[in-house]
Design a protein around this nucleic acid. Structure first.
Lengths: 172, 172
DNA sequence: CTTTGACTATCTTTTGATAGATAGACGGTT
DNA sequence: AACCGTCTATCTATCAAAAGATAGTCAAAG
């Protein structure tokens, strides 16, 4: 993976976090990176290719991130809630949530990668000890909390929505 | 509101449920309705105007829908979970969830209408007896469950994610 | 005779994509 | 060392389609 190809994926991911698949163009990415749009096509023939590659890379990063978080705190609810919160605190959205909401409008390979992302989380949650319902509800809640925080441009909304998930809250 | 204007909004809403703000064009809408794209501009000068009008109308419809649902079953958790489920069962997405996920990419007035939609729900939940944390979590969970069901094209995923919200499940 | 609603026609930008040229790096052959 | 072919990466130039928007026309209704 060349230097430029990585920069292209970085730029695309940044824009996908804001506007999803329709939120970026070859020319915008090219300008961000400092090359011509044809050079972007050289590395990623089609827009679908680029988006799919970005989502896959993001999923791999997320997978590793969660693994490390679980080493620090093995409680899956806390680990995942905190992990997704990090994205929101940074003022960004998880690109898979943005694209997942418009899943029916995605090219097939991109939709498949997005599905893979959520499947990965569900599977990892099961491995961490949650049963299917618990895993689905946790994933749904932190996903929805991200959307709400995005809509209100307010991290506090994420915290409010996930407040009762955390053990301390239940005890209070 | 003319016959045609209503048909335009219907067509726009249908496409927005799939692809959000970027998921429709004046020409597509015009073709759906059977008029020329310039006629769409006549009724809704800009794309932003059309989208904002659709979201507002959808919010009003949703508000009435919830009011009626609460008359049938005053338990807010059951009422909202069932209401959002209806959209998913129909194989569609709530347009406000699709657009909310890409909120940062929306024209200001459209983003404001989407915010209004979620504020409306939060307020109504409070009126129905939920405290702020419960309301936020419920809204987040059914929102996220909708996204997951959309990603997996599977209503069962919505049910799994919302299973523990329902009283019967807690008792089990 | 003004308003309403829709039409024709057209403009400008943007977009995804392609073709073809160029320049440099690398490796093998003479 | 000098030459040759190939591959890589990028550029210039361009296409065809799609998109949002506007100007001006026309017919029917009140």
């Amino acid at each position: 993976m060349s230097e430029v190809a990585t920069a292209i994926m970085d730029a695309a991911e940044k824009r996908m976090r804001i506007g999803g698949f329709g939120g970026f163009s070859f020319r915008e990415i090219a300008a961000d990176v400092g090359v011509k749009s044809s050079s972007v096509h050289y590395h990623f023939p089609t827009k679908e290719d680029l988006a799919a590659a970005v989502v896959r890379r993001y999923g791999e990063w997320a997978s590793n991130f969660i693994d490390e978080a679980l080493l620090v705190d093995p409680d899956p609810v806390k680990a995942w809630t905190k992990a997704f919160r990090g994205t929101i605190v940074a003022g960004t959205m998880c690109p898979c949530i943005v694209m997942g909401a418009a899943s029916q409008d995605l090219p097939p390979t991109v939709a498949a990668e997005v599905r893979r992302f959520f499947e990965m989380h569900a599977k990892k949650m099961a491995d961490a000890g949650l049963d299917p319902e618990q895993a689905s509800e946790l994933l749904a809640t932190i996903t929805g909390a991200s959307v709400l925080a995005n809509v209100f441009s307010d991290t506090a909304e994420y915290d409010r929505a996930t407040h009762d998930l955390l053990p301390e809250a239940v005890a209070a």
